[in-house]
Design a protein around this nucleic acid. Structure first.
Lengths: 331, 331
DNA sequence: CTGAAAGCGCTTACAG
DNA sequence: CTGAAAGCGCTTACAG
């Protein structure tokens, strides 16, 4: 049913070599031959087999994308932009949702190797696959340290954390608490926490951080928030390292009769389009997601094309404070 | 640098045939040979080349997924589930964000053909690629009619539309308006509109539907909502065919001094996890996204495996009404 | 300007 | 239980 290059050649009355040349626009071909071949391809509804091409060229133009889950709006948007940019540059994207599980990440990495991807973009939060680039394949990480030689791209987490914390202080909050992912992850996102701690210390305040073990399970948010309210009932400012956690906190606070922003002011992190639509009143630190995607893809492609030197190992793109009502003046 | 089957064979002191047999567990191999081969593979950090395998087997275990954009939480979640289920069944997913643009869809479809995908799941909203399955490739559509022979999987839109409209009526709304995508799309989602119209008619009310041309551009929401408030200032009930549109409406209504739910009650559609976290007060019709994904993948794999007969052409999975405060009793 | 041959990395009959 | 040969659908030197 599917036709191949020989079918086209036969129908056009030429050799497969010639068909290949027409497809790839290589060498000299008479217009007449070119037309014959084009017609034959159309007639047979011929699609060149990229697998066979890739086998020969040792280039698949395939890139693997590993994220925790596209369910999370940050990664949903990131995946969109990455795929979009890849496509515009002639690359295709194999999607992997690792759910931050190490075994899954490992088996995805193996799968990507078997499929001969030219490179991998890792937007997942776990550690563990430090042997990624030992296999000499191009790798770029999003907000995540993988090894000394793998470039990291992310938002300017330290500035983001600073902006968030200082805003809460300037709004008069006395007891500002921070919620973040597990510190063991060693992601650059812990810089958000560092900034919070530094700013708090700078103001002679005590920094208190609650760790959400698995930010992708909402049940986990609630457990931590429960504990937070038990232990710090007088909290009046919250900086969450992620908008969904901020939203969970707001809902739980309201259940406890707290008014936002009167009783507690809240700042999130990410500032996705989705969050801007669904929860526009949330004050947040917006990451430049499209720019992160673009930077990561361009870096990866440089690696793929053999530029291993002079690649910036850490790129932190500018964040933006979006002020909404959750830190607002009283209604 | 990368090793191939001959490298392994040489190191193990056997033929490539034997290595292949060990990898695929086919035929009889002595334990001794098996061990030698396994060791050689480990030593060389060998990854079998799935491209070469696929070329021979004429089976890539690759499936293409076309969605408008994973930025939208419904499609972000759908993509997650589809990928997840595919992986558990040994398939890999090529992600395509078409942004509902026909040219993009067309070029994605071509790309997928060249990459020899075994099947395609189309979750996009546009029409136009009716020649998808003429190329005799397995195709399943999500909430979208593509051709007479392509199975469609979606939520029970008619019931969803009925539940939403009847809820608004039972809450005492007098002027209920509906917002939906363009009717030309002929997606099963127009059944939400049909249900709205039928219920309204059944109650002797006038049905008024506002069409959002491009549900994936928020600017477009605002334009339509503006017009809606101009033309129907006394609206007191809104059924939006999508939670993001519902959220945009709520924001705009508040800007106009309207209280939700006192002045206007609002029901959305989709009920994604993200929306449940960011806007938990929204009353909505929840689609069973994981189930839709599972059903679509299973159907696709049946097609891939040659079962073209007795495939259900339309599968509508049960929806659930989630009541929140946007239709609630007054605070 | 065009074609025959070899090879990309695998697998599967076919022999032995 | 194991191996040599042919072939999956392409492309690229190499000839002509």
């Amino acid at each position: 049913m599917k036709s191949n290059i020989s079918d086209v050649a036969k129908l056009a009355g030429v050799s497969p070599t010639t068909v290949s040349r027409v497809m790839n626009n290589r060498g000299y071909i008479s217009q007449e031959t070119r037309d014959k071949v084009d017609n034959a391809m159309k007639e047979l509804n011929y699609f060149p087999n990229d697998l066979a091409r890739a086998l020969f060229n040792k280039r698949t133009n395939l890139i693997g994308l590993i994220v925790p889950t596209t369910t999370n709006p940050f990664f949903g948007e990131l995946s969109f932009h990455i795929e979009n940019i890849c496509t515009s540059l002639g690359y295709k994207v194999l999607l992997c949702n690792s759910l931050s599980q190490m075994e899954k990440e490992q088996s995805y990495a193996d799968m990507l190797m078997r499929n001969q991807v030219d490179g991998i973009i890792v937007g997942a939060h776990n550690r563990g696959i430090s042997n990624y680039n030992q296999r000499n394949i191009a790798v770029v990480a999003i907000d995540r340290y993988l090894s000394k030689t793998i470039p990291v791209v992310g938002s300017d987490n330290y500035t983001g954390g600073t902006l968030a914390t200082e805003l809460l202080i300037s709004k008069g909050c006395k007891n500002i608490i921070h919620m973040n992912g597990p510190v063991e992850l060693e992601t650059p996102a812990t810089l958000r926490r560092k900034a919070y701690e530094d700013v708090m210390e700078g103001h002679g305040r005590q920094a208190i951080t609650y760790e959400v073990r698995d930010p992708f399970r909402q049940q986990n948010h609630y457990e931590v928030i429960d504990r937070l309210f038990d232990e710090c009932p007088n909290v009046d400012g919250l900086f969450a390292s992620n908008d969904l956690v901020a939203a969970s906190f707001i809902a739980e606070a309201r259940k406890r009769g707290k008014d936002i922003p009167n009783d507690i002011k809240v700042v999130g992190y990410d500032g996705t389009e989705t969050c801007q639509i669904l929860l526009p009143e949330l004050t947040t630190i917006r990451q430049p997601i499209a720019l992160i995607a673009k930077t990561a893809v361009e870096l990866l492609i440089k690696e793929i094309e053999g530029e291993y030197h002079d690649l910036p190992l850490e790129t932190y793109l500018p964040v933006e404070l979006i002020e909404g009502n959750t830190t607002g003046t009283i209604a």
